[in-house]
Design a protein around this nucleic acid. Structure first.
Lengths: 217, 217
DNA sequence: TAGATTGTTAATCGATTAACAATC
DNA sequence: TAGATTGTTAATCGATTAACAATC
């Protein structure tokens, strides 16, 4: 296939494929079919084939996909065949927790700097990193070629931090604060909100004991 | 409108509406239009009206929506007009960070118990909660009427923990481990995966310096 | 050759957006 | 009455799934 603009849904599945492919590789499996991938990842095999076909002909008819080859291809598509440096702003509990994921992010992504605006936090050590003051953001982003920012500050600070990140030249932001961040269209923003996730789960609970509803199941 | 089955996309927007409505209420705003909501939340006003109309006629033509009334309605729809108790399994950094969100979850959702399988963690204090051993899960779920579980254990333990939660009578799970959890269809599982979010962001970076691609923009 | 599995087209399904009559 | 805004239908858009020829 090739070309066409790729939908966000497709892009978000690529890391999921990659994760399972890495696991297969570790288990020394060399080949995998869309059928098996689909079963393991709860996805339709046709969808997986279509997703991959957007980027090239990676499989072999009658055989399936070569695990190592596909890993390489997906890493290239995601642009993680080069190291991508990440800055995290907000050295609270969540920020500290995420810093520990560096080990998981072995795929050439790395949190290389942590910032906070609170004097109480500055200078503290988080793993191998020292919490830096916000006014060093710009210079550090430049020096370390940081391209992605993670926001783990309280909601009322999130927009300001995003603005500073963008000012500093960061190209994409992962926002954990429960607020909608506005940014120019060339800056990519993904939001992930724990409270929203949790509240929406409640909707699907079957009705509790003290209950006399019967509208939606 | 009423009836029809409600799509997941709609349900996931309800907590977003609720969050902003709460903010409006705090600012003593009494009425809001779908237009203003849409602008603030980066959503299409028609979509907002349609979302809400699935559940009833909450607005007034020519006027908009009454903030307090709509808050009440959404809380009822999400079933958080009763308190919903939550258990968290995995008292690592992420688990501890999430426990601190109790303050944010004022909408009648509360993490009321924390578990871990590691003897080193059991007995530790996290805010007001004491980390309990896994074999107390079942009994605690029953006693405290816990209905939602949060999984913050390493990936290789996630499926087992989910199974135990389901065994214990938990009806919905929020999974932070980077693995696909299998469960019977009546158990709702939402996944939220930091590494997947971050890797997919890289795709959208404009091409870096050392680069000679020009296929996708 | 027979069996398996891809890449791709066509069919289906679902979600978003536009438009507008109803009405406050 | 004039202006604003809902609720809802119809139009559009996009994503998923089924089906199958191509081929390893």
């Amino acid at each position: 296939m090739k070309a066409d603009k790729i939908s966000e849904a497709v892009v978000r599945r690529l890391p999921v494929y990659l994760r399972y492919l890495n696991e297969l590789h570790k288990r020394e499996v060399t080949t995998v079919s869309s059928q098996e991938l689909g079963q393991k990842l709860d996805l339709n095999p046709a969808q997986i084939r279509k997703d991959l076909a957007y980027f090239g002909d990676f499989g072999r008819k009658g055989i399936g996909y070569d695990v190592v080859y596909l890993i390489d291809k997906i890493r290239h598509i995601l642009k993680i065949d080069q190291q991508i440096n990440v800055a995290l702003v907000g050295a609270g509990n969540l920020g500290q927790a995420l810093s520990n994921y560096n080990a998981y992010l072995k795929d050439n992504m790395k949190i290389v700097a942590v910032f906070d605006s609170s004097p109480a936090k500055i200078g503290h050590q988080i793993n191998t990193l020292t919490v830096q003051p916000m006014d060093e953001l710009r210079e550090t982003v430049r020096q370390l070629h940081i391209r992605i920012g993670i926001i783990t500050v309280p909601d009322f600070e999130a927009q300001r931090v995003a603005d500073e990140m963008i000012e500093s030249g960061i190209g994409a932001i992962l926002n954990f604060a429960p607020t909608i961040i506005k940014a120019p269209p060339h800056i990519r923003i993904h939001a992930t909100d724990f409270t929203t996730d949790l509240l929406s789960l409640a909707y699907y609970l079957e009705n509790g004991k003290d209950d006399n509803e019967n509208d939606d199941q």
